[in-house]
């Protein structure tokens, strides 16, 4: 049974009379990874900062595990692990000393648990070195370690893939999904890397000019994403799809055909194309679906 971990109710923020956030409502349940998407200046980071109490709201409320962040800060923050923007650490201390200082500010983080998270993020070898010798990716790992060491109910990660190499990103993605699905953490991730969000998240919330414009499950996007065919005889292929499979077909700019059909039908279409000798070059899933959705929703958006 999943439980409501984070709730934003009609959250507003104005800075010097300028409305930055205009009424955000959002719910996040345990065991779920929610991607938070938005162009620069859309209010992503401001919203994340309000959730963890770094910025005060002008109106509205945030509840973490049932506790109001403004009225019951300590109880609410007991359930939160986070990295906000960059993984800043005390660079004149070692990674281990950083973790020790932060652990001492929480209740019940044992030395064993600290060692466990250090190995979880693959930092055993460098943990006793000073942080100023770390690369951005290593700082990011240390940041993740400090965020998860208290086993929070809510994990907030702002641009966590920054500075990680491809292998690191893939490890990180597995770690996040493990935390969400096995330890049933609720994870809120903001990122610019759409493919990353798509692979990692269960749902995405798209924010534009201080408002959430769409919340949808990734499954939904993936289901609708369509199939692309690259063939020589474009018009003939389009006709076959339209007449024999009764589906709407788009002829795209790059002379490919895009159709929304079930995966079970794809092999039948391919067989027909071979028989009709339309010169089939390749067939592919439409990978840019989230990007398309993102661009469509945030089109013409200027930084405000």
């Amino acid at each position: 049974m999943s439980e409501l971990v984070l709730e934003l109710r009609n959250v507003h923020k104005a800075i010097k009379g300028k409305k930055i956030i205009k009424g955000i409502n959002l719910e996040l349940f345990s065991g779920e990874v929610l991607g938070f998407l938005g162009p620069n200046g859309s209010g992503k980071t401001t919203t994340l900062r309000m959730i963890v109490g770094l910025i005060r709201m002008t109106k509205g409320e945030v509840f973490i595990a049932g506790h109001s962040i403004e009225k019951d800060f300590v109880k609410a923050m007991k359930n939160v692990g986070c990295i906000i923007e960059n993984p800043e650490m005390y660079d004149y201390l070692s990674g281990w000393e950083n973790l020790k200082i932060l652990a001492s500010m929480e209740k019940g983080i044992t030395k064993e648990r600290m060692k466990e998270v250090v190995s979880l993020v693959g930092m055993e070898k460098r943990i006793d070195d000073k942080v100023y010798t770390y690369s951005l990716g290593m700082k990011q790992r240390l940041g993740i370690a400090q965020a998860i060491m208290k086993r929070p109910k809510l994990l907030i990660l702002d641009e966590p893939a920054n500075g990680l190499d491809p292998a690191g990103i893939s490890e990180f993605r597995k770690l996040i999904q493990k935390l969400a699905h096995e330890e049933s953490m609720a994870v809120l991730v903001s990122s610019h890397i759409l493919a990353e969000i798509e692979m990692m998240c269960d749902r995405v919330a798209i924010i534009k000019q201080g408002e959430v414009v769409q919340v949808t499950t990734v499954k939904n996007i993936v289901k609708d994403q369509g199939i692309i065919w690259k063939i020589k005889e474009v018009q003939q292929g389009k006709k076959i799809l339209e007449e024999e499979f009764q589906t709407a077909v788009q002829l795209k700019e790059d002379q490919t055909l895009l159709a929304f059909i079930g995966e079970d039908q794809v092999s039948m279409v391919n067989k027909r194309f071979m028989e009709a000798d339309v010169g089939l070059l390749y067939v592919n899933k439409n990978q840019k679906s989230l990007e398309d959705l993102f661009l469509a929703l945030t089109a013409g958006d200027e930084i405000v």
Partner: peptide, 14 residues
Amino acid sequence: TTGTIKLLMTRPVP
């Protein structure tokens, strides 16, 4: 300046 204030202020400590 270094941003570590965010680490301190997101602990369950008033």
